[in-house]
Simulated scan of single mutants.
Amino acid sequence: MFHIVNTDVFDRESLNRLCHLSDAVRQIAKETEGARFLQQLLPTKRAMLYFTQPSTRTFLSMNNACHVLGVRTSEIRDPEVSSEIKGESFEDSIRTFSSYVDLIVMRTPEPGYAARAAALMDSIPRPVPIVNAGSGRDQHPTQALLDIYTLERSFEQRGGIDGKTIGMMGDLRRGRTVRSLSRLMRHYRDVRLVFIAPPAFEMEPDIKAFLDEYAIAWSETAALHEALPDLDALYVTRMQFEHDTDGESARVDLSQFSIGRAELDIMRPDTVLMHPLPRGREIHPSVDSDARAMYWRQERNGMWMRVALIATLFDAQERILDAVDRYTP
C-alpha cells in the first residue's frame, strides 16, 4: 500500500487490520503518556494538505491525525495563493510539494486528479504517497474507511458487517461517499444494499454493475418508510447542490427522503444511523439525541482511522500495536 487513490487497494484483511489499529490508537491516546508516545512516532515526517475544494471534517481530521503522530503539516486551501494562479501546471505543483514533504493529502473538485498525482509520483526518483481525500464526484476512500470502522464498531455485538442490510439514501448519483463505501462491500459476506433516492438521483449504473459483478445483492426504491424496517444501518447523504446545472436539487421533495421523529418510530431499535456530514434538512437536529444516531461518533472515528492509515503508510503500525498493553489502564 503506497498510494490511496481509491478503495481498490484494500481487501478484507487490510480493512480488519486498519480497524484494529484504530482501536489501538484511540486506546493509547487516552493516557497522557500514551499520547506523547504517539507524537514521537513520526516527528521527522512532513505532510502537505492540498485542499482546493472546501472541507471541514476531512481537512481537520487529516490535519489532527498527522499531529497525533507528530507529523508536521503544510497546507494550501486556495489555488489562488499558489503558483497555479501564475500558470503553473497541476503536475508541476504536485512535484514541487513532493520536494518538501513525505506525504501529500489532496482534495479536488474535479475527478481524476489524485490518480494523476499518483501516476506522476510513480515516474519520479523521489516519490511520496498520495492520499485521495475526495476527488470530484468520483471517490472518497478515507471516508469509506471510517464508515467501515463505524459500522464494525456499531455491529461489534452483532457479528460485524457480514450479513447486514445497509440502506443508502439521498443524492446517490453525485455522492462520492456512497460510491466508495459500496465498492468496499465486496469484502463482506451476504451484505444487501438498499438504495433510497429520488428517481433523478439514483445510484449510477457503474456502481450497480460493479455490485452485480461481485454478486452483491442490491435493490432501489423511492419509498423510505417501506424500506426502514428492514435496515440494519441507514447511511444518509445530503443533496449535492454544488453540482447542480439547472437548480435540480431544489425540485426534490426532501420530506420524502429525510429522517425525523416519525422515521425513528419506524426504524428498528438497533438500526445504525450514519451521515458523512455536513447535513442539510435530511436529518432533523432532534434526531441527534437518539441512541441510534452515530454520525457524531462517525466524525470522530475519522480521525482515528486516518491516524491508523498514516501510521501504516509509514510502517509505524507494529510499534503502536506493541505499545497497547503498556498504555492500557
Rank of each mutant, 00 (worst) to 15 (best):
V194A: 05
E80D: 11
S83E: 12
G87H: 05
I283K: 05
Y235C: 02
D232E: 04
G167S: 10
T312K: 04
L151V: 12
A316E: 14
I283Q: 04
V71P: 14
P205Q: 10
R77P: 10
M239W: 06
P79C: 10
Y149C: 05
T142A: 02
P278E: 01
T245L: 14
F314Q: 09
E282V: 03
I124P: 01
G112Y: 05
L193E: 12
F2D: 14
G136Q: 15
I94C: 01
I216M: 06
T245N: 12
I166H: 11
Q40V: 00
E31W: 09
M1T: 13
Q256A: 12
A133T: 03
P278F: 00
T328W: 00
R319I: 12
N16H: 13
A35E: 15
T312L: 02
L264M: 14
S249K: 03
D162Y: 11
T58G: 07
V287I: 14
R137A: 15
V287P: 04
G163V: 11
I94Y: 02
H67R: 15
I266P: 00
T7P: 04
G163T: 11
S258G: 09
R17S: 14
I148M: 08
S83V: 11
Q39N: 14
R158Y: 03
E248W: 07
T73S: 03
D122R: 04
I207C: 11
L273V: 09
Q39I: 00
A323H: 01
L18Y: 14
G260P: 07
A209P: 07
G112W: 13
V105L: 09
Q53T: 07
S99A: 09
N301G: 09
M267P: 02
R153T: 12
D288K: 01
N64I: 00
Y113E: 09
H243F: 08
S258M: 05
V194T: 12
S99T: 01
S89Y: 05
P79L: 10
I28Y: 01
T165N: 09
R174G: 00
Q39H: 08
P111S: 04
A65I: 06
G302C: 07
T150L: 09
E220F: 01
P276Y: 06
V272K: 08
P278L: 05
R26K: 15
D270T: 14
R57P: 02
A29F: 10
Q256E: 11
H20D: 15
G160N: 13
R158A: 03
N16E: 13
I124M: 04
I259R: 12
G112N: 07
D162M: 03
V272Q: 13
Y100E: 01
A47N: 00
G134W: 15
S289M: 02
G160R: 06
A65H: 02
Y50T: 03
D78G: 10
D290T: 01
D290Q: 01
L15W: 12
A227G: 06
R46Q: 08
M168D: 02
S135V: 03
T44S: 10
D288G: 06
R126T: 11
G163F: 13
E202Q: 14
H3R: 09
E33K: 11
T142K: 04
A200G: 13
E31R: 13
S22D: 07
M203H: 05
D322P: 05
H140M: 12
A217R: 12
T312W: 05
R36S: 12
Q240C: 08
M48K: 02
Q157D: 13
S14Q: 13
H187Y: 10
